[in-house]
Design a protein around this nucleic acid. Structure first.
Lengths: 280, 280
DNA sequence: TTGATTCTGCAATACATATTGCATCCATTA
DNA sequence: TAATGGATGCAATATGTATTGCAGAATCAA
């Protein structure tokens, strides 16, 4: 029986402390497989005894048995070369998920070739200095508009998600001023509203940030900041929002960094910044 | 220093018993990495103490240190995710974007350890057989609700995105019947509406698909299909939707596959399927 | 609020694993 | 063959790790 199944069978009876442990065990089984009950417990801030009791609850005689099971399931015992070959065989033959992930990983790995830190920071700085953020997206990109809207609001920005047809759009951007910014998403092709929108932004003296895919550089007129990188998969085929979402997340973290600096809180490392963000 | 080098430096001074041990260590380092000194010694017919002394001879303080080294060299390295991280660490600095991408790639690489093809297909089959799809998400996951809603609608499914408070929810699910399905997103913690929703689904004989993160297995009551895999980043820190979005995309492609089969169009490869999907 | 119940940490104990001093064995050499 | 010195196993000790009884804390229901 797999670990996840075992957890499911006892899911209803898990206590808060046990839940903490389970979360860690599920997300980092390798660490658990090589560590001790004490290490796991200390890491999650509960007592060693609780870890032992959880093992029993999951249906194992002892904690050691539990660890052995994790090892069986998550530690590669076979020859690595053989394993790689197997994986490739699978992905070449059948698995949708493997194919998808392979493409996503490749595309993500290429991202930093297109967007470097300073570019991201410039855009983040611009946004953090603005009063109001307008967000425009059409098609699948609306997903990202929802994401940015939520994240920005949580950081106490005032946002306006632009929706509807050209008349609606015109009404919504009427109040845009020089202290505002527009975040615009464009993939595949230039949205119909693109030119009038960008011209309006320029006219009122606002700033624009364009987040895009491969078409990014060929958009015209250009915005103040262009954050574009090609997406996973072939053009004109199934393309995902993973790469632009990574750009969005990077942007959010970068903005958070400026916010921290603004409030004179110095953080030692980026790791701390990331850890401090979004905590509940 | 690698194990092989260490052995070479002391090769001249190895005793017969030690030679036996070294042979085993070299040929089955993974077994040694997970076992005890006693196990190794007994297997090769020498005394436990000899194993301990060999460890010291190889330049380690204790047998545990020796085993840790073996683990580093032969177990941790075989984890594809960690290997990627090491590569990225070496080739680049520690910018926000690098850190983010590194985490995303790691998490994505691990995805297939948690969700296999059959699990995905089962869920896809269930959905493709349903008349109407209800979608429930709260917090950041609403982003994914928007994604799924758009994709499913394009595939001519009738969808209902559940919104609002408990009263609204109750009204919206009133018409749910046995031909319907609920896709529910849950991260961090179980949503308040989770239990009543799932109970209603069960009562009316509908199906449920839960897409989740590390908490997935500990949700209760459980749905008919659980698609869960840990997300990138540390628990309780900045966590992204990349992994669950990959699950969604995989699900969509899988559903598309069933649709193709239903309409008697046979595709030679999945690559073609993916290329054919979502083309405009 | 009270009482019952469950959860959880503490600390003592039990168990597993590693280290070390000592005795013996074996091979080598004179 | 006897002497020597390293190699090895034995067993006691030390260290690390897991389990368990107990009591205080938290939770829930009445």
């Amino acid at each position: 029986m797999q670990l996840a199944e075992r957890v499911q069978t006892v899911a209803e009876t898990l206590t808060p402390a046990e839940r903490k442990l389970v979360k860690e065990i599920i997300s980092k089984p390798r660490d658990v497989a090589l560590g001790t009950a004490l290490e796991l417990a200390r890491k999650m801030g509960v007592h060693q005894a609780t870890a032992g009791r959880l093992a029993r609850k999951l249906g194992f005689e002892t904690y050691s048995d539990f660890r052995d099971a994790i090892r069986d399931e998550f530690i590669v015992k076979t020859d690595p070369a053989l394993r790689v070959r197997k994986t490739l065989e699978i992905s070449r033959g059948q698995s949708i998920l493997d194919l998808l992930i392979q493409q996503e990983v490749e595309a993500l790995s290429r991202l930093t070739a297109y967007i470097d830190e300073s570019r991201l920071n410039d855009a983040a700085k611009t946004i953090s200095e603005c009063r109001r953020i307008f967000i425009f997206a059409r098609g699948n990109a609306e997903t990202l508009a929802v994401l940015m809207d939520r994240r920005l609001r949580r950081m106490a920005f005032e946002t306006v998600v632009i929706s509807g047809d050209s008349r609606d759009i015109a009404e919504q951007i009427l109040t845009m001023g020089r202290q505002d910014a527009l975040i615009l998403f464009a993939f595949r092709r230039q949205p119909d509203a693109y030119i009038p929108l960008m011209e309006h932004v320029r006219k009122v003296g606002a700033r624009s940030i364009v987040i895009s895919g491969a078409v990014g550089p060929s958009l015209s007129p250009q915005g103040d900041h262009l954050l574009s990188a090609p997406r996973a998969g072939k053009t004109d085929a199934f393309q995902t929002l993973t790469v632009p979402m990574a750009i969005c997340n990077g942007l959010i973290l970068s903005i958070a960094q400026f916010d921290e600096k603004r409030s004179l809180i110095q953080l030692e490392t980026l790791g701390e910044l990331i850890a401090s963000f979004d905590r509940r």
